[in-house]
Design a protein around this nucleic acid. Structure first.
Lengths: 345, 345
DNA sequence: TTGTACGCGTTATCAT
DNA sequence: ATGATAACGCGTACAA
């Protein structure tokens, strides 16, 4: 009860109560092994009694770190990312790191804001889930750069560790599925053109079609941007196509777009999957409960977040140490009700 | 270019370059007014040239704060909360605060973890979005308690500022809507029994029925827990009710439950709204694009988050200052396709 | 194994 | 208006 200073207990108070030096208390906290059983016991009790907890500002100042990591994601309101974030949060908080969150797309982040965030004086490292941050942002940032890891998305030709699924393979799986159902006219609703995921998924789509000797006119590749709204627009695009020559199946680069698409088609009395088969990508929560339930490609969002966080913390602790091998994230085709065999007639 | 120490520029480097003392540099940063126009100019240039950025650990240590706020939410993977979080993030980062995120329900937070988080040595304040944190957790926490604000949910009889909509009024709006459509047999799918929101929404539901002299048998109040899965279960409950005496309309305490409900009904060939009208609560993203589009009560999630964050920061800056008046969050009945007039036959 | 003493980078206080 | 300097609380050489 005899602490100084507004009664918030400091390491000194513990030291006094335990009749040891502050150094010993510190050691008990950081390297319990370097302290004798007996004194450790006493110190631990004193900590308990005083209610002492470490002052992170002081520790970080002393150690030259911040104890914080930045998570930069395109859109916090998107449930896909919040799942990844959950994985990150779980491991980061386990290691005692704070999380700094920032949106990069809504609204778009400018260079000044980015520089302000991506700064050794604020964070020890960053997990970036947006592959469209301009390269120049990184170059101009402070000379001393925090550790960096990409997740889900990434910047090509950039020697930075990244954690993501094999998007091309996933797109092949999805397209193969449609082909397997007998569809011959297959279209694709893409993500934003400049997005790396869009590009890989488009490539997978094209690779599958080529493998099966199937054509894909320009008109059947509809540009979207991953959002529900762009799915709605894609539906209008499809509706405007000539009835005798339009896709009987569509591969959407995101579940969200598939939802928008199906919803708008429904407004126009087009039945999924009877009139048109639709497959999505991601397997968000809602895919299992939409009407019709959405066939899609599942990716382990949470595990990706966890892996990225673990790797980043590893880097922060020892920048030189070799990275542990990157896990392979398994993909899974989840069969539900939005795809069906091509009617024979 | 002549900084010491691993070339990360410190306030001293700026001071030297500008030929002033460190104190002056500090003042330029914190109280520009207390410095002459001329020197301010020089210092600003020096800051620019050196690429100096503030060291938050040092500042926080000196100031006796942490620069971080905790956001404790029931489930990060729930899109309702991620929207609120977005509002919080926007204002917190604007004021230079870091955000510490933690899940309180998945998995349930234990007292030790909570105490570890809710600690003046780690955070300056907390925004709690979970009304089911046991009171004892707060009592036992460190004597020095961080500032606290509730949002969305809250603990009753607790003299803590909270930001939330009028849930009872919202429930009345929803139920009145069903009554207005001619429904006389109206049921309710509740949230978890111990949840404050569930209780208020249930109260609103009952109040509206009473006002209209409508009965509500026990069987028509179905206990859920806000999740999609509990909506599915509610559907099975409804299906098991006698066909000649079951609700023709259902008010769901969350959109998620409404989705699960509709999805499961669809599996069983029950048509919404033809066979059963359904209204939700929250107006999450997806409500506008589900099939059928969901009639629901809209609440301004992002604004709630912003208001809570602003209030908390206000408290942190000056604990004694009177709180600004709490904004009134407007509710809105959003009419879509999941509710319809009771058929006359 | 333990204690002493200094420094981490900043800001508040007190001078000037 | 500006400068010198003493804290802030902790970790870690180094000495004992």
């Amino acid at each position: 009860m005899s602490e100084k200073r507004g009664n918030i207990p400091r390491i000194q108070d513990v030291a006094k109560m335990a009749n040891v030096s502050t150094a010993t208390v510190s050691r008990v906290l950081s390297f319990p092994d370097r302290v004798s059983e007996a004194t450790r016991e006493v110190v631990l009790q004193a900590i308990e009694k005083t209610g002492y907890t470490i002052n992170h500002s002081a520790r970080n100042l002393r150690k030259g770190g911040t104890g914080a990591i930045l998570v930069l994601l395109p859109n916090l309101a998107n449930s896909f990312f919040s799942r990844v974030l959950k994985g990150i949060e779980a491991v980061a908080s386990g290691y005692g790191f704070n999380i700094l969150i920032a949106d990069s797309q809504f609204p778009p982040i400018d260079e000044a804001t980015f520089g302000n965030l991506f700064n050794t004086n604020r964070i020890d490292g960053a997990i970036i889930l947006d592959g469209n941050i301009p390269r120049s942002y990184f170059k101009r940032a402070t000379r001393q750069k925090p550790q960096l890891v990409f997740a889900c998305e990434w910047i090509s030709d950039c020697a930075v560790t990244t954690f993501h699924i094999d998007n091309l393979a996933g797109a092949v799986m999805a397209t193969d599925h449609l082909v397997g159902l007998g569809h011959r006219k297959i279209g694709h609703v893409t993500g934003p053109t400049n997005n790396i995921l869009s590009q890989h998924r488009l490539a997978g789509f094209e690779q599958s079609l080529k493998k099966h000797n199937l054509p894909c006119p320009r008109d059947w590749k509809i540009t979207g941007d991953f959002t529900i709204e762009s799915g709605v627009k894609a539906a209008r695009h499809w509706l405007a196509l000539p009835k005798d020559n339009r896709p009987t199946a569509l591969f959407c680069a995101s579940d969200e777009m598939a939802f928008g698409l199906i919803s708008e088609l429904h407004q126009n009395a087009v039945k999924v999957p009877d009139d048109l088969s639709i497959i999505g990508f991601d397997d968000v929560e809602f895919a299992a409960h939409s009407i019709p339930a959405l066939t899609t490609i599942h990716q382990p969002r949470r595990r990706i977040g966890e892996a990225a966080a673990r790797a980043l913390i590893h880097k922060i602790r020892d920048a030189e140490a070799p990275m542990p091998p990157q896990p392979v994230f398994e993909l899974e085709l989840v069969l539900r009700a939005s795809t069906a065999p091509l009617p024979l007639c």
